[in-house]
Amino acid sequence: MTQTLAGYNFAYLDEQTKRMIRRAILKAVAIPGYQVPFGSREMPLPYGWGTGGIQVTASIIGRADVLKVIDQGADDTTNAISIRRFFARTAGVATTERTVEATIIQTRHRIPETPLRAGQIMVYQVPIPEPLRWLEPRETETRTMHALSEYGAMHVRFYEDIAHHGRITTTYDYPVIVNDRYLMRPSPIPKFDNQKLDMSPALQLFGAGREKRIYAVPPFTKVKSLDFHDHPFSVESWDAACSLCGSTTSYLDEVLTDDQGGRMFVCSDTDYCRSRTS
């Protein structure tokens, strides 16, 4: 175990705060998809950098946990590295880039391609938790709409997509109904990953720091993406395979290779890609 930073509590947050957040998490797990308010703390990094996810991780992480942090599928971006180092220094936990080794995976914008297993916990960083916000600016009203399952108007957005573009053009943060009850934003993951939310063996926790909300999808919970009968939900597909590992089933990023229009497609999940090539 590495040396932890002196003068800080384990995993940075004080125990009272962690307890408060754990209570919020328990409530969130008990009511899948429901947004539980919590007393979000100031963190030593700005909102929008994953303060919600970090507080959730800090509250559930234990000394034996192995933490993986990804940003857009990659373990080596600035954001991912600094969060990983943050917990290495404040909690002294082991970190990894391997999905299979991790017990907690904090993520921004992706779910790993490697299937998750029971016992793992996904922690999502959420910028805007409220799926009804674009429809209705008043929080009192959106809460009532959730309470009464008044979600019909959500389809207005998809109607507009189809009317103007012939298809549903929402490609990420694609709204879902959890456990046939609550409407939920899955955070800005590509809709490609929505299918991984459904009946996942892993516990999935969502933290929004600025908006002070936590919500959850417990293991093996039904998660259904909104759609129309005549325009069913479908995910992205690519004509190309990953240029590095040859995968035809993973989510691909388009990478420009030169300024002559050269480009290639590679797996967005770097760990997955590496595990297939090594």
């Binding site: 019909g152 389809h155 109607y159 129309f228 009968h229 005549d230």
Partner: peptide, 10 residues
């Protein structure tokens, strides 16, 4: 219509 459950775009 959508608010009362219509889910067929056409």
């Amino acid at each position: 219509l959508m608010a009362i459950g219509a889910r067929h775009y056409g």
